[in-house]
């Protein structure tokens, strides 16, 4: 068989993504986002997201096929995020994927969202180094994963014990009067400011490192920023939003990069891959590359459009599964909001 043509569907949060991939070549990456509808709520509202997925699904599939210049009947397999994510949102994508599989008479792969964030880098930088250390950071997850082979083995080393990194960006942005989602706005503000405040680095004390060496915690940092801002407001002092943004961002990136390098060093791994929406943060990219290089570790980060949730990442993993001859999922495949990362195919 020539390189497999795979259509991937992603609906785990607020993006309806449909991607089409042939082998490691991306042919289409259509995304419809409901982020505007969530902005006034300061976070993703699951029912609003689910309703938007239903409306966007067929038009987004159609758009992906047009862009890729392929007919649905030429597709070799359907891949879909079966978890983790918002239950009701996942279910829309999984049901659509099953309808495609049924209608086309093609196999379906229910795949892990986090493994897809790892696999997507192949579309940009070619085959993944084995093993590699994946740092996945977004509004929904913050994990360190040892990836031996993305189609079979992903070993979680650590994860956030409270807020996800992207959530911390959203909450701090709100505190500073910046719009949702917070990541891009904080990134932009921070470029105009200086790191002047020494905000806490969660789970980095010697005691915390004993139990949570590769875990993250961002809720203390968020509270520290809130306290700092409130104290200034109480004193009637002016708050330099750019400096607060820069200092907060520095604290988040510092912890993420420190722990990723520590994990890679500990595991004897020479490649770090960063994925997820927060990987679009400009400071994180620079800091990770600089510090890793100093340790002889390479860093791969897909371009920002592939870091955020999209259908191409699902298709990329699907294409890898087809190429390796992995067994497809059954038609009664469930959407599993807490699908463990160790389960690459449901």
């Amino acid at each position: 068989m020539s390189e497999p043509l795979v259509l991937g569907i992603e609906t785990s949060c607020d993006e309806t993504g449909v991607g089409i991939v042939r082998g490691h070549t991306m042919l289409a990456d259509a995304v419809a986002s409901s982020v505007e509808e969530h902005s006034r709520f300061g976070g993703v509202v699951p029912e609003v997201a689910s309703r938007a997925h239903l409306e966007a699904m067929v038009p987004t599939i159609e758009r992906a096929c047009e862009t890729a210049g392929v007919r649905l009947y030429d597709v070799d397999a359907i891949a879909v995020t079966s978890g983790p994510g918002l239950a009701g949102a996942l279910l829309v994508g999984v049901a659509a994927a099953k309808a495609l599989a049924l209608g086309l008479g093609k196999p379906i792969y229910g795949i892990n969202h986090l493994a897809a964030h790892v696999a997507v880098d192949q579309l940009e930088h070619g085959p993944l180094p084995a093993p590699c250390m994946a740092l996945l950071v977004s509004g929904g997850h913050s994990s360190l994963l040892r990836v031996e082979d993305v189609t079979t083995g992903v070993t979680p080393l650590g994860a956030t014990i409270d807020d996800a990194a992207g959530e911390a960006f959203d909450k701090v942005a709100r505190l500073l009067g910046l719009p949702f989602p917070g990541g891009p706005h904080i990134d932009r503000m921070a470029r105009e400011g200086q790191v002047t405040i020494d905000f806490p680095r969660g789970l980095t004390s010697r005691r915390d490192l004993e139990r949570h060496r590769f875990d993250f915690s961002f809720s203390g940092l968020k509270t520290a920023v809130a306290r700092w801002v409130e104290a200034r407001q109480r004193d009637g002092a002016t708050i330099d939003v750019a400096d607060v943004a820069a200092s907060f961002q520095e604290a988040v990136c510092d912890v993420l990069v420190r722990k990723a390098i520590d994990a890679a060093t500990d595991q004897g791994i020479e490649d770090i891959l960063i994925g997820g929406g927060v990987a679009a943060n400009s400071r994180l990219r620079v800091m990770a590359t600089e510090r890793a290089e100093a340790r002889g570790i390479r860093v791969r980060v897909p371009r920002p459009g592939l870091c955020t949730d999209n259908g191409a990442m699902v298709a990329a993993l699907g294409s890898e599964l087809v190429a390796r001859g992995r067994t497809p999922s059954a038609l009664d495949l469930p959407a599993d909001s807490s699908q463990p990362v160790t389960q690459v195919v449901a």
Binding site: R51, L54, M57, V58, A95, A96, K98
Partner: peptide, 19 residues
């Protein structure tokens, strides 16, 4: 109930589109 209802609707729309 919305969650189940959407399963039927997205299936109908997608199947109708493919076929």
């Amino acid at each position: 109930p919305f969650t189940g209802l959407r399963v039927g609707l997205v299936t109908a729309r997608t199947l109708a589109f493919v076929l």
